[in-house]
Design a protein around this nucleic acid. Structure first.
Lengths: 347, 347
DNA sequence: GTTAGCACTCTTTTAATTCGAGTGCTAATT
DNA sequence: AATTAGCACTCGAATTAAAAGAGTGCTAAC
């Protein structure tokens, strides 16, 4: 049996997808035949396209129309057929400029990349901030702000900070507050946010002795703060680029916004490589006519965050994918550099 | 000259708008004539409707269609014609339950109202949080979080808290940090966020003496934090209810999202009463086929915040407006109660 | 002042027709 | 054996025509 997908068929498939990405119209055999590096007649192309359709890479909207790519078609195109446009030095410079190297936290850095990507691709972008796995608690503080009102503060080594306003039943004495600060410093400082479980909190509550009654609500607050750190939220940038699209309904966008955390979780499954592309309903991604490209950001080999775009199926993958890869690559470099930096100087 | 808008015409106008709000279709004379409390023939109604059209309250999409309300028509309807459905005791109870009376800050309270309103009306709601005019700075702190990294913290008397991560050129000595804390406490504690201008900051910088060089960046950060408090952001709740609408384009929504701060500012102009309704492009409000209802929340008679909804022109005004008025009324009560509370106990 | 009657207007719907792009197949060509 | 020209065929899109229907404005009668 001969090779089902010889060089010419691959070329034709690539050409069909290239054309479809540009025009959005079904592509006919004539259009392909007129391309300079295709040297066969429309009839031959028709035969090949029929085969490509049987193999599931192309489909016809109706009997007498040209072909459009199927999901499998796009998949093959992205994996093997398209020739990714290498990033020029000039583009590199531009992308580097967009990255906020002065950013005080890794999260701010990744957000700047997200903004840049959104503007350059005219797509919405999604960011998953740097995972709390890599940060430990630096400080937990309680600050009185009014009658029976206290602000709880939790700061991590990565510079992230969260707060929560607590209303207590009683006012705290200075002594109680001092105890709390000391207690937190002794027991939580240096603890990974990731490790801070309910159990640890309960143990701490139990071991508080006479302070238990008054300070338990604060500990509850601490637990909530830690929880907040763990649930790294997904953030959407350039929402306008989604809203402006005519080919998707607002309801789809709304559904995506509500499920974006879970969608992102699916996209970051270990079984995928560092770059993963999903279409339409792949793995719970649900915006019709759309594709989502997500690249992982690693630190010490472990998943630390991610950056991606959501755009139409007809996306200029050959341009966008290199952009994403370059940006996430740079970020990965920068956040590991940072680490060295800290390591060198703190010891 | 006879009264241009006699009782019957007003009744007919109200009936047309009532019907249009329900069906969304142009309303004809027959439909109106069939209503129980209209005792005249279609022909009479046609005559009246022609007058109402000349007066600018109704219009015809085309020659042989029924009438639909114009902006002026809606305006008159809302101001004078509709019979606002009084809120039943049961509804009051339900609304009260939705309000988070345990909310630690006024902002959290108003957010809870916004959520409830969004769900009850199936519209998007907009909130403008409680103005910083009513809060003073309680605390400014700097907390080291890593090499040359510091978190600046600003807390206000209303329990609001903002932070900013600063990366400095040098590490601070304990002495420098102590000075900063003391300096901030002495000079900024009790200062209204509103009053904290560039000038004050500059004066503080100038008066810092030997600490000037090292601490100026922190002061800059303080200024930025204060700025952040002043620019009370507008927050949209129930965005899905906007997205799900078929009669507006995503581009319109995007434009609104980008301009929402300014739109809200226009809506809160002093020349309007406490409740203001804008249509389509009134005063810079730009979503087609939509109306925006905003009610002011006051404290000591001064504008403190606001709550509103954005829905279709065909909104059930008679139901929604009382809801908004009730909620903002309750909030107004609650935040002034709070004040008394504080006043009583702090003296 | 109100109303019945009616001609008129203009959109919506439906159907019929045409047009054209693109295909698949067959037979000829290389 | 692979490629290609030629051609009949399919099916959506665009065009046109006709009919239906809702609602009006006007006139004349009540």
């Amino acid at each position: 049996m001969r090779n089902l997908l010889d060089e010419r068929k691959r070329k034709i498939l690539a050409a069909v997808i290239d054309a479809y990405i540009v025009t959005g119209e079904p592509v006919g055999s004539k259009t392909i035949a007129s391309l300079p590096d295709i040297r066969v007649s429309p009839a031959t192309i028709r035969n090949d396209m029929a085969v490509l359709e049987q193999l599931g890479y192309l489909e016809q909207p109706h009997t007498s129309a040209g072909r459009i790519p199927t999901y499998s078609g796009y998949r093959l195109y992205i994996d093997e057929l398209m020739n990714a446009k290498a990033i020029s030095d000039e583009e590199k410079r531009m992308l580097d400029e967009c990255l906020d190297i002065e950013a005080p936290t890794a999260d701010a850095l990744i957000e700047s990349a997200s903004k840049a990507l959104s503007e350059l691709t005219h797509c919405a972008t999604v960011v998953r901030n740097i995972s709390p796995k890599f940060s430990v608690i630096t400080k937990v503080e309680v600050i009185p702000t009014g009658k029976r009102m206290y602000v709880l503060l939790m700061i991590t080594s990565s510079g992230n900070i969260r707060n929560k306003v607590c209303r207590l039943e009683f006012d705290l004495t200075n002594e109680q507050m001092d105890f709390f600060s000391r207690y937190m410093a002794e027991n939580l400082q240096g603890v990974s946010v990731d490790e801070l479980s309910e159990e640890i909190i309960e143990k701490l509550v139990a071991a508080m002795g006479t302070y238990m009654v008054t300070l338990t609500p604060l500990l509850k607050g601490v637990a909530e703060l830690a929880e907040g750190f763990k649930n790294t939220e997904i953030h959407l940038e350039g929402e306008r680029n989604l809203l402006a699209r005519q080919d998707i309904s607002g309801a789809q966008i709304a559904r995506f916004l509500e499920n974006k955390n879970e969608v992102m979780k699916n996209m970051l499954d270990d079984s995928f490589g560092d770059l993963h592309v999903a279409f339409g309903e792949d793995g719970g991604f649900v915006i019709e006519n759309s594709s989502m490209i997500v690249s992982k950001i690693r630190k010490d080999g472990k998943l630390a965050g991610s950056l991606g775009v959501i755009g139409p199926m007809r996306l200029d993958y050959a341009k966008v994918i290199p952009y994403i890869e370059y940006l996430t690559g740079r970020i990965t470099e920068m956040i590991s550099e940072e680490d060295e930096d800290n390591g060198d100087n703190e010891e």
